[in-house]
Design a protein around this nucleic acid. Structure first.
Length: 710
DNA sequence: GAATCGCTAGTATGG
DNA sequence: CTAGCGATTC
């Protein structure tokens, strides 16, 4: 042993240390929740460099989110110093984007290609459906897009897709697929799946390129391996096959992305794919109390076909998880506010707390209650911030400046704010573009010669071309934050919003200011941020990546977004059949198992306190409906769960109406009727009424606009 | 070509 | 219930 400083090894437990020091070929680390897997990954990288002489630039580490990548990078820099900056740490998508920015010319795209999001791709698919003469209503663009996406992720081409199709929708998708792909290329654009697919294509078509990247990244490490799909698996395989320094880390109990192609077999069968692979298991949990782990474990152990493991911990027993049976979603939200306040009074901080829910729609009521209580919070809505209309509009302008072939963005902004270039004009320009084989934007430059355009209209079009030209010119010299301001000023976008003077317009302006903040932060982080860097960021970065637990707010997010995070205090809301597990997963046992893993992921985010709640009545689509408790709640033995009783504050106590069978009633909408039955209690007390107008209806007494008649 | 009205689908989960 | 979209009207 030389004088190398290996003290970082001392803080590891024996299992972690073994995984860190293993010097052989492919390895799989099965790492239970909270068992220090990020630590193992980062320490292993440090060890590769320190003890095995690996060069930092030879390391490729794939994480699931950009936030995880940043954390990992910070930790490695702390251990290795600035040399660590030469490593590549990022998500599959960002790593592929980086490769494609350099290499995509081989595939016939330009280097400033646009990355389309789900909305953009959806629009393009819709155009293709129209172009092929199919009815958009019958073949919903999103459904078609989803089939194409699955095909891409499973590496099926349109022929194979058509061969396997067993319904009209898939057959149409198989026809749309090649056209969509052609249009993407015309737009110099790729969708999310393309980032991975085109990279695999590139590697398979050009062995010299693959060779370069194999030399570049001799050590490949992949986190959250249970959530990789076929394409990602393929990428890893292509890259790691030669040097075989491959370390994958994952937990089959935390696989929650099969719906977007993740294949849990990637982890379950790793040993078959790599027969010489060593398997390591990390089972000591450092995060949660035994009570929380017991409860979470009792849920996930219902799943079949999992790798057996038992988490244990030396942490103090702590409190048992608390179950709160709320009357409705307002009550549930009030409980959260109440309990966070209690914690704050006891010396805690709002930022200790996270609220998880199955669907975004649940956040609203919780927000209302937190506002009422004056508690600071932040909603992490995944990519949704970037999908807001105003944000997308400004980004569309920016994209157009970087890539004038991006017709989807062009169409989006050409008449926003309205500048007299309507659908008919765009249609004529489009016809001209097609018959002359030029892009839509080039057709606009020729507006004077386009058939059917009046002089006045042509003038408006040319003014737009000039506007974009001037902005493009400006984009070369300006930082992206300056450019954003110039865009919303010069296009008149901001002026129009400000003139509206409505509450909604104010909110939109706030969102645009937030976008500006993001660009400014980018500048602070990296010095200056060019247009291209800005676009890369907003295309691939997820809102959770901005999570800052020191900033003093309660974090609200979906259970999916909670993966990889931890909080002292966790609220799992909406523990109801049909919501969690979601109704659309209930037909299929495999999907229910995935929901169960999601439940496990949520529960194991909690360090010391875990609340689980359900609403007896929940209003969805404007209609209140009684609910049944989630099966996951029932899977937790009573000894692991306490019931939270909050008699003092129930804010929405509802008097159960004293109706009797046979009594005459009158309903605001359906008029007169007679009570024929009563059931349930409290808020979920139901009444059956035989109406003269519409016959028998079952109603909730506490919500129905119902009165006694007589 | 733009503005307004009214209908209807959506609410899984996300890079 | 509400946002987004298409039909209708100006």
């Amino acid at each position: 042993m030389t004088s190398k400083d290996l003290t970082y090894l001392e803080s590891l437990n024996p299992a972690q240390r073994e995984a860190v020091e293993y010097g052989g070929g492919p390895m799989l680390v099965i790492a239970g929740a909270g068992s220090g897997k990020t630590r193992v990954l980062t320490t292993r990288i440090i060890h590769l460099v320190t003890a095995h002489g690996a060069k930092p630039w030879h390391v490729l580490a794939i994480t699931f989110t950009n936030k995880a990548a940043q954390e990992m990078k910070d930790r490695i820099v702390a251990g290795l110093g600035p040399a660590a900056m030469d490593m590549t740490v990022g998500t599959f998508h960002s790593a592929c984007a980086r490769i494609l920015r350099v290499e995509i010319g081989r595939l016939g795209y330009g280097p400033r290609f646009t990355i389309f999001d789900e909305q953009d791709s959806g629009r393009l698919v819709a155009q293709c459906i129209d172009e092929l003469g199919y009815d958009r209503k019958q073949y919903h663009p999103r459904a078609v897009k989803s089939i194409i996406s699955t095909a891409k992720n499973e590496m099926l081409d349109e022929t194979e897709l058509a061969r396997r199709s067993h319904n009209l929708m898939t057959e149409v998708a198989a026809q749309v697929y090649p056209l969509y792909q052609e249009r993407l290329k015309d737009n110099d654009a790729v969708d999310f799946d393309d980032l991975l697919l085109l990279t695999v294509n590139l590697f398979e078509l050009y062995p010299d390129v693959l060779k370069r990247y194999r030399e570049r990244w001799r050590h490949v490490l992949v986190d959250e391996y249970q959530d990789t799909n076929v394409l990602q698996y393929k990428l890893v395989k292509l890259l790691a096959e030669e040097h075989r320094s491959l370390c994958v880390v994952g937990d089959d109990d935390q696989g929650i992305y099969s719906w977007r192609g993740a294949d849990i077999r990637n982890i379950l069968e790793f040993e078959r794919d790599y027969p010489d692979a060593r398997v390591f298991k990390l089972e000591q949990n450092y995060r949660s109390t035994p009570n929380i782990l017991d409860a979470a474990g009792s849920v996930v152990k219902r799943n079949k076909g999992r790798k057996d493991k038992t988490l244990w911990t030396q942490n103090k027993p702590g409190k048992r998880p608390l179950f709160y049976p709320a009357q409705n979603e307002h009550d549930e939200a009030a409980m959260i506010a109440h309990e966070v306040n209690r914690r704050v009074e006891a010396g805690g901080a709002p930022s200790d707390a996270a609220v998880f829910y199955r669907t975004h729609a649940q956040s609203r009521v919780i927000e209302e209650e937190l506002i009422k209580e004056g508690l600071p919070y932040r909603v992490f809505a995944g990519v949704r911030f970037y999908e807001r209309r105003e944000v997308k509009d400004i980004i569309a302008y920016m994209r157009l400046l970087a890539n004038p072939k991006d017709e989807v963005s062009l169409r989006r902004v050409v008449n926003v704010p309205t500048r007299g270039i309507g659908a008919t004009t765009v249609q004529r320009l489009d016809e001209y573009a097609r018959s002359n084989g030029v892009t839509l934007f080039d057709a606009m430059k020729d507006a004077g010669e386009v058939n059917g355009l009046s002089k006045a209209t042509a003038k408006k079009v040319l003014a737009f071309v000039e506007l974009i030209g001037a902005l493009t010119e400006a984009s070369m010299a300006l930082d992206s934050s300056e450019l954003i301001e110039k865009v919303w000023t010069d296009t008149g976008y901001m002026e129009e919003l400000e003139a509206e003077r409505t509450f909604e317009a104010e909110a939109r302006i706030d969102n645009l200011r937030e976008l500006l903040n993001i660009a400014s932060d980018l500048r602070e982080e990296y010095g200056a941020a060019s247009l291209d860097e800005f676009l890369e960021r907003v295309s691939l970065v997820n809102e959770t990546d901005d999570l800052d637990q020191s900033a003093g707010y309660i974090s609200l997010m979906t259970l999916h977004n909670a993966k990889g995070l931890e909080f002292p205090l966790v609220f799992m809301t909406g523990m109801e059949e049909g919501l969690f597990p979601h109704e659309r997963s209930q037909q299929d046992e495999a999907q229910v198992e995935e929901e169960r893993r999601l439940c496990y992921v949520g529960m194991t985010r909690a360090r010391d306190t875990l609340y689980m709640s359900r609403a007896a009545v929940r209003t969805t689509f404007g209609a209140p409906r009684p609910t049944a408790p989630s099966r996951f709640l029932l899977e937790i033995p009573e000894r692991f769960l306490d019931e939270l009783k909050l008699d003092t504050f129930r804010p929405h106590d509802v008097e159960a109406g004293e109706y009797e069978v046979g009594e005459k009633v009158i309903h605001d909408k359906w008029g007169a009727g007679v009570v024929v039955g009563l059931s349930g209690e409290g808020e979920s007390r139901q009444i059956s009424v035989e109406f003269e107008s519409v016959g028998r209806k079952d109603l909730l007494i506490s919500y129905a606009p119902l009165k006694k008649n007589g």
